[in-house]
Amino acid sequence: MSVGTAAQSAAGPAGALDAERGAAGAGGLPPGFGVDVAGAALALARRFAHGGTLWCFAPAWPAHAHHVAVEFVHPVVVGTRALPAVAVSAEAGVAGLRTLCRAGDALVVVASSEEPAARRALARAPAWGLTTIWIGAGPRPAPGAADHVLWWEGEVPSQAAHTGRFVLSYHLLWELTHVCFEHPGLLEEPQVCSGPACVTCGDEGRLVEVLRLGEGGAVLVRAATGLEWADASLVEGVSPGSLVLVHAGSVLTVLAEGSGE
C-alpha cells in the first residue's frame, strides 16, 4: 500500500487516538512529561552506571514489561550498549521481585494507579532500596508513590496501553538514558544526607518490609540489605506485609498495615 505525506494528514480517525488533541500539547506529550522523563532517564542512567539492574513489571499488561526489558538488553540502535534489564512476570509478581532485586537497582512499573500488584510493589520498593519509575494513565498516583511518574493523566488506562502511549513513554526513557551515558561526569549520584544517626548505637531508622512472624515477637523482615530478624514486641499491629521502621534491631513504628499475605 502507499503511505501518507504530511499534506494528507489532516483527517485522522476518530476515537481514542484523537483524545491527545485535548489532553496533550501539540507534540503529543502531556504537560511536564518531557521534564519528568528527563529526570527519570538521568536517575536510571546513574543506577546502571553503578551496576544496578532495571526490573520491569506490568501486572495487567505483561507485554509492556517484556518490551521494556528487551529494549535495554538488545538495543535497536547500533553502538548503544546492552544494559541489564529483566521483566518480572505477572505470576512471579511482588514475591519474585522481592527475592530478585538488590539495593541500588531500579524498578519500572507500567500500570494504572489502581493496579493492586503495582501499588504493592511500589510501596515496598523503598524498603528494598530501589529507584522507582511509574508509567501509566488515568488518575495520577498519590504524591511520592514513585520516585519518577510518567503519566498520561487525561487518558483511559486500558486504551493508553494499546494506542502506543506507553510504548512511546519507555522508548523515550531508553533513548534519553543512553544520552546520559555521554555525560559521565553527571553519572555520579549526588550525595544525599540521610540525617543524623543515633548517638548511642550509630544505627538509623530503616524502612523494612515484614515477611513473617516468628517466636517471641521476632519478625523476619526484608531490608535493603536482604533478610534479617527484628524484634517487634514493642509495637502492636505488625503483620506479614507491614512496612515498619526498624532501629537498632527493634521495630519502632508501623508505617503501613500488612495485607496479611
Binding site: G4, T5, A6, S9, A10, G28, L168, E175
Partner: peptide, 19 residues
C-alpha cells in the same frame, strides 16, 4: 529532545493512519 521525538511520533502516526 523528548518533546521533539514525541512530535515526530505523533506526525508519523497521523500520516500513516490517514493514508
Amino acid at each position: 529532545s523528548a518533546e521533539a521525538k514525541a512530535a515526530e511520533s505523533a506526525a508519523l502516526r497521523a500520516n500513516v493512519l490517514a493514508a
